[in-house]
Design a protein around this nucleic acid. Structure first.
Lengths: 340, 340
DNA sequence: TTGAAAGCGCTAACAG
DNA sequence: CTGTTAGCGCTTTCAA
């Protein structure tokens, strides 16, 4: 059996309460007494039982990361996100549990009701998200990764898609491109309208193009290479003057690039392709090296945990955190004809 | 405050013990009494406090998934694995915590000492793994994902690399290929010798080639497209008669394919490429669709949890579970000249 | 079939 | 500064 506080107390000749004080640094203790206790702890190999502590203190030091059952953000940096969150949790003496739950809130309510976790991190939040409404009714603090339509009173961490899009367009414009198309992602289940990132990226693209007098060209593709190929053909058919394309899907980007090559419009020599909000893994796999704007998965995970812990500790809140993607230059060059 | 068992007991006019019996189905209870209690629970919205239960029963119903800090299996199906494990845990009323810890066992010992978890799942196990030795000294059950050199008394779940390699070679041989090369992964940190999957796949390849009278050709590449390109050049220089290549790295596969194309040996028309033990994400991103043998990440995660739970419940153990990768045909054809 | 009661190991008043 | 004590909410003998 594991060593308990009581045994430590006996060995050190003090009361169990005093041991608790030194373990948690919760009250002043004479250096001499402290030393005796620490010695006893070391000798006996004492490790506080975290479950007993949780029951007595009403603080489990456990956070939950709620992930959808379906892959919501296709091919995205989920792994990095999870690991970033787990790291951040550990760094502040917390544990992270993974809860894969459906999109209706009921299951989530049941889990939260178990009182296992102090707070909840909600991944892949949708514009209208039943899970959020469900959590609003409970008294467990939570933080969003992503954004709902109605954000009153909520804390969230998200990718700054508008800024990322601007970064992408600035990059391409800086290379001399004047005809920049956008291939947006799409998900049959809810249509383009429902998925926040898609909505926001398209809005940002349209706004920026108009602002710069670039006729907006928007196409769509699903999350596979074949769909990317289709987009390539459609692009050349409908907007042949295009010299650069921003695409928000990894698999789609791969297909698009390959098809452009097949159609004698090689990337990046003849047309530039930039993959928006892809994962780091993808970036290092592209060939030719595509320019990418990478989702900062780890950082978002860390920030999500940070925001949640602030709520739990009643520290100043982190209400609206946005992070721009990271630009990694591939082999993109300017449009044909404009090059030195 | 949340509803407690005591309140339910009062409302139903029974003792707290009886409530416990119906909640856990641990003792027979008169239908009539049971009904009263269930009614009270429903009306009050009672949810058992899992922490109190854990303290009293010495069973937390929490499992830990230990992941290395560094990416050990490059680009692999980590996400699927994590989600598979989380799902399986949930399906048997358990929780899964993620512990990103270093490779020395000390941190792990400290975490386990907290008595938060009933069992541990060790990911990315190395041939000589300090974490395993550390866990052997404790009394918390654990299961390996991967294998150590010394497996006595241990339960593990792993990819059957030999079988996967055989599947790959059979597939290619069936298409008529007689010159099949293998590009193994490599990791500078520990050399080829240290990483189990690399060791085993190479051994399997060599054995199978010898068996079939195919002179073995083995090259190495790191986990990036550039390294894959190098491998392509080296391959054509040293074994120009090669008609098919098996490569065990996703990024490397991308680079290899691209470089072969650039050198006028297009895939799959002129030479076949098969990506061994890659992730499902990768498979759907390849263009042209590469034939892949995919790591069954979800399934391994589920099986790991299953094996662990069996230990915990004293059910017949699952000591040595191996799963073969899943073959997904891409556009591979037979070698040039042998085609109809 | 049900109840009483003794913990599980620790925290947090409160008292001294 | 240290000790006493009453729980935290539930499980689990042991009796009734």
């Amino acid at each position: 059996m594991a060593v308990t506080m009581r045994q430590v107390a006996e060995a050190a000749g003090v009361s169990i309460a005093t041991v608790s004080f030194v373990v948690n640094n919760s009250k002043p203790v004479t250096p001499e007494t402290r030393r005796r206790i620490e010695r006893a702890m070391a000798e006996l190999g004492f490790r506080p039982n975290i479950v007993a502590r949780a029951l007595a203190s009403r603080r489990t030091q456990i956070l939950a990361l709620v992930t959808p059952l379906s892959r919501l953000w296709p091919g995205a940096a989920t792994r990095e996100f999870i690991l970033g969150a787990a790291q951040a949790a550990k760094d502040s003496n917390h544990h992270l549990v993974i809860w894969p739950v459906g999109n209706d809130g009921d299951e989530l309510v049941a889990l939260v009701g178990q009182k296992l976790v102090d707070g909840v991190l909600l991944m892949s939040v949708q514009l209208d998200d039943a899970r959020v409404e469900a959590l609003r009714g409970l008294d467990t603090p939570f933080t969003l990764i992503g954004r709902t339509r109605d954000l009153t009173g909520l804390d969230y961490v998200d990718v700054d898609i508008a800024a990322s899009m601007r970064m992408a367009m600035d990059h391409l414009a800086g290379l001399g491109h004047r005809h920049i198309a956008f291939v947006n992602g799409t998900r049959d289940e809810e249509g383009v309208a429902g998925f926040g990132p898609y909505v926001r990226s398209e809005a940002a693209y349209r706004e920026l193009s108009t602002e710069r007098g670039i006729g907006p060209v928007v196409l769509y593709c699903r999350s596979d290479a074949a769909s990317g190929r289709e987009a390539a053909r459609e692009l050349l058919a409908t907007a042949p003057s295009t010299t650069a394309v921003i695409i928000q899907d990894e698999a789609g980007a791969a297909g698009l690039t390959a098809e452009l090559r097949r159609l004698d419009r090689p990337v990046p020599d003849d047309i530039s392709v930039l993959s928006l909000l892809s994962s780091a893994d993808f970036a290092e796999m592209c060939d030719p090296p595509l320019t990418t704007v990478t989702t900062p998965g780890m950082e978002l995970g860390r920030l999500g945990v940070e925001a949640l812990l602030r709520q739990l500790d009643n520290r100043p809140r982190l209400t609206a955190v946005l992070r721009t993607g990271v630009l990694a230059r591939g082999g993109s060059t300017g449009p044909v004809g404009s090059r030195r």
